[in-house]
Amino acid sequence: MRVLVVQNYDNTGLGQVGAALAEAGADLDLRRPYKGDPLPEDATGHNAMVMLGGGQNALADDDYPYFPALLELTRDFAAKDRSVLGICLGSQLVARTFGGENKIGGASEFGWHKVSLTPDARTDPVLGALPQDFPIFEWHDDTFALPENAVRLAGSEIAENQAFRIGRAVYGFQFHFEADRPMVKDWSTSFAPLIAERHPDWHDRLDGEMARNGADADAAGLAIARAWVATI
């Protein structure tokens, strides 16, 4: 199993998705196109693709000129019935790939928040075994309208479209289910100045929020990761 991993921003790792891929014995092909790494021409050499998050918006082609090629690559993975996973920015790019409208701003969430599954999620192979409501880590300002052929799987009070599926196994997740407690603590240090500008009380809130939500969020996130890997 060879999995293409597209990293779009510094200090954004696979987290629990990486753990699930390691359990499955996957061979990872990490590309950082924002640092000049070339993207594959098509999906032929890979069984699946993961697109990670980032601080940029999904329409930032001028600053990230590889975005259009990444959209074409995503279409090719889908056409070849190969699993795709987009997280946060990655989910916004998946929505854009298939005609969803990206909405810049107006949907800010940070920290652990509750998401709720839709009725369609109950029979979904990735989300079907999860609780109806669960806490998960969020960090985004933007959102999107679903493509016409997408199945909506989860939402929250702030962002209606938190998870969706296209076809058999192309998934977009606005929330950071890959971010377990160690990753959140790392982000809280690595991005401390940026977080302090927007959420000056985060340092004081972190331990309490983690104690309340971390275990349930980590369990949900790992379950999602393992279930998605099973689609490959």
Rank of each mutant, 00 (worst) to 15 (best):
E157D: 15
N213M: 08
L28D: 13
G155H: 12
F110P: 10
G45L: 10
G15Q: 04
L73K: 03
N8L: 05
V94F: 01
D218P: 00
E157R: 14
A215D: 07
A223W: 00
A230H: 07
D29T: 01
E138F: 12
A223N: 07
D81A: 08
D62M: 05
A78Q: 09
R212Y: 09
F77N: 04
D81T: 02
L85R: 01
H46W: 13
R165Y: 02
C88N: 02
W139G: 14
A219W: 04
R152L: 15
N149T: 15
W139V: 10
M1Q: 06
R205E: 14
L85E: 00
N161S: 12
W228K: 00
H203M: 13
S116C: 09
M210A: 02
Q56H: 14
A230F: 03
P33W: 12
P119W: 13
D27W: 10
D207R: 05
W202G: 03
A58R: 00
W187I: 13
A22L: 03
K80M: 11
A223I: 12
A217D: 03
P38R: 13
D201T: 15
M51T: 04
Y34I: 02
E178F: 10
G45A: 14
N57C: 04
D120I: 07
D61G: 06
T74I: 07
R82C: 09
G221S: 07
W202I: 09
W112R: 11
R181V: 13
N102D: 02
F67W: 09
P200M: 10
F175Q: 11
G53S: 06
A43R: 06
V6L: 00
T44F: 08
L222E: 03
S188F: 03
N11Y: 08
L117C: 08
F110R: 04
A219L: 02
S83N: 07
A225Y: 04
E109V: 05
S91P: 05
F191N: 09
G36T: 06
H46S: 09
Q132T: 14
N102Q: 11
E41G: 06
W228M: 03
G36N: 12
L4N: 04
P119R: 12
A78M: 02
A60Q: 10
P119Y: 08
G214R: 04
E209L: 13
E41D: 13
T44R: 15
D62N: 12
L30N: 10
D61K: 10
R96C: 00
G111Q: 11
L117P: 01
G55Y: 07
S83A: 15
A223T: 13
D37E: 04
T231H: 01
V115W: 09
F173M: 04
A220R: 07
D29Y: 06
Y64I: 12
